[in-house]
């Protein structure tokens, strides 16, 4: 579904991503794990068209995403839940969700998606008229995920959805990621919580200093001693 080939991304003189290649097949949950500053968010921003690569290719459904703008990437079926949630304060919960469906015009299908989102996150329905800024951190994470779902993506990019959340929320978020995937959305999951991410992932890649160091199935990586040492506290 998505192939990233020899991707290089710079911030001025700093090379944040150095010839990274990986692929995601339709229906999978793929995880990208790595320490702070490894380049994970940079890769996601580049896929979403917020940053532009120096070289390398991103091919989505056989189409290269070169010079494609961020809105067109959303239209093509890739939605991102950004690191740190980035919900829109000042807009109500429902308006935030409406913005998620910004590019859609099919009213009946949109109202069906609202139902799906409220089904995954009933708390959002209760709070739908409330200013999104007044939600708790965990609820904001749910809103950010709900907002991405509103675009009805084929591929969902999640950037550290468990960051800063209490364990009970983390479990819920991971369960919902599995459910979203089971309902037909392919998932690219970025996590520092490598244990949990590898446990639900079909495959994973380990990123360090802008390069892929290891790859394998979720179970393989969980069992890998180097991964255990570096990321699983083992």
């Amino acid at each position: 579904m998505l192939t990233v080939k020899d991707l290089v991304v710079n911030y001025g003189a700093i090379q944040a991503v150095k010839k990274v290649s990986f692929e995601i097949h339709t229906g999978e949950i793929v995880t990208l794990i790595g320490a702070n500053g490894a380049g994970k968010s940079t890769i996601l921003k580049t896929i979403s068209g917020i940053l532009h690569p120096v070289s390398g290719e991103i091919i989505y459904q056989d189409r290269p995403l070169k010079k494609v703008t961020a809105p067109k990437i959303v239209r093509a079926g890739i939605s991102q839940v950004p690191e740190g949630r980035h919900i829109f304060p000042g807009l109500s919960v429902q308006e935030n969700l409406q913005m998620g469906a910004f590019l859609r015009t099919d009213r009946t299908a949109i109202s069906k998606t609202y139902d799906d989102v409220y089904h995954y996150f009933p708390v959002l329905k209760q709070r739908r008229h409330q200013d999104a800024a007044t939600l708790s951190g965990g609820e904001q994470q749910m809103l950010a995920m709900g907002r991405a779902l509103m675009a009805k993506p084929q591929l969902m990019l999640l950037d550290e959805p468990s960051m800063g959340l209490a364990p009970i929320f983390i479990n819920e978020i991971f369960d919902i990621i599995k459910a979203i995937n089971a309902a037909g959305t392919t998932v690219l999951l970025i996590e520092q919580n490598a244990n949990k991410a590898l446990a639900i992932a079909d495959r994973g890649y380990v990123l360090a200093s802008g390069q892929i160091k290891l790859s394998g199935t979720g179970t393989e990586l969980l069992a890998n001693t180097a991964v255990q040492k570096a990321y699983l506290g083992g």
Partner: peptide
């Protein structure tokens, strides 16, 4: 919808782009 998009861009242009605005 356009008015809400204006408010979204005003508070967070990057997130606004990520939803397709």
């Amino acid at each position: 919808k356009m008015g809400k998009a204006m408010r979204a861009v005003a508070v967070d242009p990057t997130a606004a782009q990520l939803v397709g605005i």
